[in-house]
Design a protein around this nucleic acid. Structure first.
Length: 219
DNA sequence: TTGGTGATGTTT
DNA sequence: AACATCACCAAA
């Protein structure tokens, strides 16, 4: 039975934390049941990074990012989904690690019950929104201390060798695509299918609608 | 297997 | 208006 990381572990630079969380185990207790997943994909968000939610300073939504490391940051996105992060670095420094995918280890029956439309096990948790559905993570799980919380925490799991890990640009971003701050386990089938953001196509111009109302930047 | 698109609502 | 996404469908 492996143990939790210390507070100091999370006080590192978000990239170091993102790298070191690969192979760790995410634990979730809900209704007396235990869910466990091995972290296989992460992304770091940090200082000077326009893609980081902390980039424009603290707001009601992002204030937890500037507080103590090792707390959860769970936010709502695209009107439907939740994303689970861990706060990194020192107090006053807004950094976090997004957990993008886990490999189910325990409680797969519960994950399936939480994702009734999914056919293949590999689709249960291979994306940030998907793993939050499978693990039933949402607003109520924002701002929990993963060092202390009895129902949501991370243990050391297995250490991954550098040769088992790849990096890429982050998924789904339109800014800061030059940073290779996505980390994932080579060949693991539970890594998300998303494409790195530097090859994601820009939003469509939508020429059929409002074609007459051409946007003018300065006029 | 890949790529395109609608759903959905909070945040700035 | 943008957004740290997903599920579904069509085409190949």
């Amino acid at each position: 039975m492996s143990r939790r990381f210390s507070r100091n572990f999370y006080r590192q630079d978000s990239r170091a934390v993102a790298r070191a969380l690969l192979g760790a185990h995410l634990h979730r207790r809900i209704n007396g049941k235990t869910l466990v997943g091995k972290i296989v994909e992460t992304e770091a968000y940090g200082v000077g990074d326009p893609a980081c939610h902390a980039f424009r300073g603290a707001t009601p939504r992002t204030k937890v990012l500037f507080e103590e490391a090792g707390y959860s940051y769970v936010y709502f996105t695209y009107g439907m989904y939740w994303c689970f992060n861990v706060v990194a670095n020192d107090v006053g420094v807004g950094e976090a690690v997004l957990v993008r995918a886990v490999e189910p280890l325990e409680g797969i029956d519960i994950m399936r019950a939480n994702r009734p439309t999914v056919k293949l096990d590999r689709d249960l948790t291979n994306g940030p929104g998907k793993l939050c559905m499978a693990f039933a993570l949402d607003k109520k799980d924002n701002g929990l201390d993963l060092i202390e919380d009895p129902d949501l925490f991370i243990t050391k799991g297995e250490k991954m060798k550098d040769s088992d890990i790849s990096v890429s640009s982050r998924i789904g971003l339109t800014v800061a695509t030059e940073y290779d701050w996505r980390y994932f386990v080579n060949g693991n089938p539970f890594v998300s299918p998303g494409k790195p953001s530097d090859v994601v196509q820009k939003a469509k111009a939508n020429p059929g609608r409002d074609a007459s109302k051409t946007r003018k930047k300065s006029g």
